[in-house]
């Protein structure tokens, strides 16, 4: 077995000093070593998007990057979206208001995808929003309420 290597990850503004094998994906490191289980794993090959997190502000698949590659990268997960339960991120509030989830398994990935792209540019066209949301899979909702929630969040986040 290969030895573990010491590693400092910056997740939601907090430092996590962990020790992992190089083969540990970021998704597993977040869940197993940082005890941040909000990031979900579905397919482990980039297709479903359940593991989507923000790396330096940009949505990425946490199952397709090794934790050792993330040294010095600012990582944001669903746990970092809101400071507390009373003050949800506009995207979280919109998913709540518009029933953008049923079982909730896909939700952390969709929230990070929507939050990342809307924080970068809330003025996106409907066509762009549809294209962005096609990145992730949901087995329950039929997508319409996810789209409605993302539209509502975009409206909320426009200056």
């Amino acid at each position: 077995m290969t030895a573990t290597v010491p590693l400092r990850l910056l997740v939601n503004g907090e430092r996590h000093d962990i020790s992992v094998e190089p083969r540990r994906t970021l998704a597993d490191a977040l869940r197993e070593d940082c005890q941040l289980t909000g990031t979900h794993l579905g397919c482990e090959h980039g297709v479903c998007g359940a593991c989507t997190v923000l790396l330096d502000g940009q949505p990425a698949r946490a199952c397709l990057i090794f934790a050792v590659q993330c040294e010095g990268v600012s990582i944001r997960t669903v746990e970092g979206l809101s400071a507390d339960d009373e003050n949800l991120h506009p995207v979280q509030q919109a998913f709540w208001d518009h029933h953008g989830l049923q079982c909730g398994f896909c939700t952390p990935g969709f929230l990070m995808l929507a939050a990342g792209t809307l924080e970068e540019d809330p003025e996106r066209s409907d066509e762009e929003l549809r294209d962005i949301l096609s990145s992730n899979l949901c087995r329950c909702t039929g997508y319409q309420n996810i789209l409605a929630a993302t539209r509502a969040a975009a409206a909320q986040m426009r200056p």
Binding site: G46, G49, T52, L55, Q58, P59, A60, R61, L64, I65, L113, T117, D131, I132, S134, S135, N136
Partner: peptide
């Protein structure tokens, strides 16, 4: 480029 995978694939 727009046809290569999805946005979270294209960022990496």
């Amino acid at each position: 480029a727009a046809l290569v995978g999805h946005l979270p694939i294209r960022t990496r």
